[in-house]
Nucleic acid binder design. Sequence first.
DNA 1: GTGCGTCCTGCATGAAACCGCAACTCGTTG
DNA 2: CAACGAGTTGCGGTTTCATGCAGGACGCAC
Lengths: 240, 240
Amino acid sequence: MKVLIVEDDPLHRSYLHEAVSAALPECDTVIEAENGIAGERLARDHRSAHIVMDLQMANRNGIEAARAIWKERPETRILFWSNYSDEAYVRGVSRIVPDGAAYGYVLKSASDERLKLALRSIFVESQCVIDREVRGLQQKSLSHARSFTDSEYEVLVDIALGLTDRAIARRRNLSLRSVQNRLQHLYDKLEVYQTTAADPDDSRFNLRARAVTVAFLRKLLNYSALERAEAELQDWLREH
Amino acid sequence: MKVLIVEDDPLHRSYLHEAVSAALPECDTVIEAENGIAGERLARDHRSAHIVMDLQMANRNGIEAARAIWKERPETRILFWSNYSDEAYVRGVSRIVPDGAAYGYVLKSASDERLKLALRSIFVESQCVIDREVRGLQQKSLSHARSFTDSEYEVLVDIALGLTDRAIARRRNLSLRSVQNRLQHLYDKLEVYQTTAADPDDSRFNLRARAVTVAFLRKLLNYSALERAEAELQDWLREH
DNA sequence: GTGCGTCCTGCATGAAACCGCAACTCGTTG
DNA sequence: CAACGAGTTGCGGTTTCATGCAGGACGCAC
């Protein structure tokens, strides 16, 4: 068995290397990449079917890389190993997992034991292993109450990118009013209001901007999600 | 000599521990904290005058912790050890360094050698050591051209928080028009325009929101800066 | 089918935001 | 002192946002 490690922090990389060797005696080769681009290339060259991937990397993040890799070979098994359980990451990963693929999501704060178990479960047993904390988010994200529908998340991203209502309408093939409707729902769910409860007369918040801030603070959005969305936006702009 | 290490990642923490022991034979005690709060407490209890501090920590980030520590004992020497050289961090650190304090800013990507040199320079020689990459940012941030004045940065933060022009005016004791003026300057410097160069007729961007996005993408803002700004805002809101 | 809920859409209005024009205040420089 | 530049402020006009009201389309359950 060959395992590819994609991780930009050298300390974490060597820790992973050791963990992989210890957990998987059947693994004879460990390859390392220090960013998403190199990871994609190595995955292609070596046809590696077993990958441990960091999410947050400077050059090209783990979600991008995983998407590209799964596009070529959907049966690839990927264990995401991340510092954070931001909803933005969880959403990002869920969005790209191919049907029936075996994958995992383990936090870096997990114990050695947990990491090794996850490695064996995914790479040997083809089981999905999702950290319980992440799992919680996923389910909250599915359950109807208090969560965001895809369309609400979509407008959230669009206003975060700085698009006008009109531009969003064109991009998503909607009427202006529908876009504004979705924004209403978004504001409701994020619980942003123009005025404070204390003094309903002075409006303090620009809802559109405030919604983005709140989403950031709640980790519905993060830098890497923004980066991805911006890249997609630029593509769309080119096509007009 | 006693050294306090404040760092949330266990791997990095033990790496630092070793580096400190190797670089500073005169150091007899190394204390560790895994977040900003514990760090502050230990700094107070042990009166530690030598601290190595991570910036990005979940519970309370390094800038907050450093500010609190320096407030009590401005002669404390702090070496910031960070993954990133975001302008938001650099600005945040510069803002809180007491006059004449010895401090340092070293990136985690620096070599062992560089880290050890920095440790000795700051803790033994009381020299300031700033990573050259960070230094570049600092100077760009001071040089007039292409950079942001404090007042422009201030409005940037305010719109990022989602305040209305009127609210910003009240908060900063300005007229509405002045706030809008600063916003104009901000938009100019961030090079955000409503329309694309290609087709000046269709306006696509909400300048206010777009400015925030661009600032994020350029790392003028980041999560921790937002978090800090939000806390200050909440304080101000309470006082009205 | 009828009724209900959810989503899309048009029209309309008051409040913000964007921005050009112009006057006024300072501190710096010649 | 006069000239200049940078930053503030007021006025006014146009555009975009936020949001209530209401009519229509679609799917699901009874």
